[in-house]
């Protein structure tokens, strides 16, 4: 896991040298889109071929709905409480 973080930080540091070159930012933005699309396809592929996940999609969706609402509610309430925004 540490290796992944090192790669991420290396990207940020390297990027900071190229802030005057707009094409570096544009190129990395496009690369990120393409890589995410490929990766999501690969994850989808693994999910589709996994019977346990496919049979439990209802409960997976229910969990996701609960967690998205709890996350939003937590953010909104703590910001009201602490930052009074």
């Amino acid at each position: 896991m540490l290796k992944v973080l090192v790669v991420f930080v290396a990207g940020i540091i390297l990027g900071s040298f190229f802030k005057k070159f707009n094409f570096v930012n544009k190129f990395s933005e496009i690369s990120v889109y393409i890589l995410i699309a490929i990766f999501l396809f690969v994850i989808g592929f693994s999910v589709g071929s996994d019977d346990r996940i496919m049979q439990n999609l209802n409960i997976t969706f229910l969990y996701s709905l609960i967690f998205s609402i709890s996350g939003i509610l937590g953010s909104v309430l703590l910001i009201k409480l602490i930052l009074k925004k």
Binding site: V9, A10, I12, I13, S16, N25, S28, S31
Partner: peptide
Amino acid sequence: FVGLQVGS
């Protein structure tokens, strides 16, 4: 590339 995008 995410790092590069943020940094640049």
